[in-house]
Computed example of a mutant assay.
Amino acid sequence: MTTKGRSLELFFVDGRPDGLLVAELFNWTGHVLLVPRTQIKQALVRAEASYTGIYILLGEQDGEPTAYIGETEDIGQRIRTHDSKKDWWTKAVFVTTADNKLNKAHVRFLEARSYERAASVGRVILDNAQIPQQPQVSEATIANMEGFLENLYMILPALGIDLFVESKRSSAAPEQAFTTSSLASTVQNASSVRFELLTPKHGLCAKARLEEGEFIVEKGSVVRSRWEGKGGRVTSYETLRKELDKTGVIVSAGSSAHFAADYAFKSPSAAAAIVNGRSSNGQKSWKLEGTNKTYKQWEAEQLLGTPEPQLEDA
Rank of each mutant, 00 (worst) to 15 (best):
V234Y: 12
V234K: 06
D245V: 00
K246A: 00
A273N: 00
R80D: 02
E301R: 12
A270N: 10
A177S: 12
K219Y: 10
L44W: 04
E238T: 01
A253R: 11
E71F: 06
E196M: 11
R78F: 07
T179A: 11
S269E: 08
F109H: 09
G305N: 15
V22I: 13
T306V: 12
I274S: 00
F164E: 01
H82Q: 10
R123N: 01
E308C: 15
A105D: 14
K284T: 08
Q61S: 03
E289I: 14
S171G: 03
L210V: 12
Y237Q: 05
Y55T: 08
W28Y: 15
Q302W: 11
G76K: 07
A177T: 15
I155E: 08
T29A: 14
E312Y: 13
T90Q: 09
F148I: 01
L288K: 12
E64N: 00
N151D: 15
K201W: 13
E308Q: 11
R16E: 14
P174K: 03
R226M: 09
T90Y: 11
E111Y: 11
I142S: 08
S50M: 08
K293N: 12
E299P: 02
K266W: 05
T52A: 07
A272S: 09
G160C: 07
D87L: 11
G220R: 10
A172E: 10
E150H: 14
P268Y: 05
Y295E: 10
R224M: 07
R113M: 13
G305I: 10
I125P: 02
L304F: 12
S225I: 08
Q134Y: 07
R46M: 14
L58G: 00
D18H: 12
K266N: 09
E289K: 12
W88H: 00
G30P: 09
V45N: 10
Y68H: 03
W286F: 08
S185D: 15
E218G: 03
G290K: 06
I155C: 01
G229H: 00
E228R: 02
A140N: 08
A172H: 14
K284P: 07
T239W: 01
S252W: 00
G232K: 08
Q302L: 12
M154G: 11
A177D: 15
Q136A: 14
W89I: 01
I216Y: 09
E196F: 12
D18C: 04
R194K: 13
L204W: 02
A49C: 04
G213P: 14
P307M: 15
I274L: 04
M145F: 11
D162C: 06
Q133Y: 13
S138D: 04
E308D: 15
A264M: 05
V35M: 08
H31I: 10
E299C: 06
Y295P: 01
P268T: 09
G19S: 05
L33G: 04
T141K: 14
Q134N: 09
I161Q: 04
G19F: 09
W298V: 02
R226E: 12
S191W: 15
T186S: 13
L57G: 02
E218R: 11
E214G: 02
G305H: 13
V251W: 05
L311I: 07
K242P: 01
M154C: 06
L102A: 04
A43G: 05
P132M: 05
A112I: 08
F164V: 01
S182P: 07
P157T: 01
V249F: 04
Y51C: 07
